[in-house]
């Protein structure tokens, strides 16, 4: 638990989009999916998920519908919209560029000192 990383601001939305891109999920499911695809390396407080979800729905990147979960409970399922899919690929590309650049910068050894 202790070696879990704090999320950078703005990255939660990206993770949600990514998680949902693999198929419709309800909120708790999204949380599990993020844990699964990140090998539980990221610390997300459970409630913090929901403001992000509502925001993405409002932006039209996700759409939501009520259904029944695998536990036979009523739950709200989220899936990507076309715009959401487009946004995901853009954000992924830009994240990768950023990560590569930061990693390169940090691994550079200074020549003197």
């Amino acid at each position: 638990m202790t070696d879990q990383a704090q999320l950078l601001p703005g990255t939660l939305d990206l993770l949600i989009l990514r998680a949902v891109s693999l198929g419709p999920l309800h909120g708790y499911g999204i949380l599990l999916r993020i844990g699964q695809i990140s090998d539980n390396a990221l610390l997300i407080e459970q409630g913090a998920l929901y403001p992000g979800l509502f925001r993405l729905v409002r932006q039209g990147l996700l759409k939501a519908s009520w259904g029944t979960s695998e536990n036979n409970r009523r739950a709200k399922f989220y899936e990507l919209t076309v715009a959401g899919r487009k946004r995901l690929s853009e954000e992924t590309a830009s994240w990768n560029r950023l990560a590569t650049a930061i990693a390169a910068a940090l691994s550079q050894q200074p020549e003197e000192a």
Binding site: H26, Y28, Q46, G47, Y50, S69, A75, K76
Partner: peptide, 12 residues
């Protein structure tokens, strides 16, 4: 919203 949060807690 209330129902959704309740459902989340129930699943957990």
């Amino acid at each position: 919203m209330e129902e959704e949060l309740r459902s989340h807690i129930a699943h957990r």
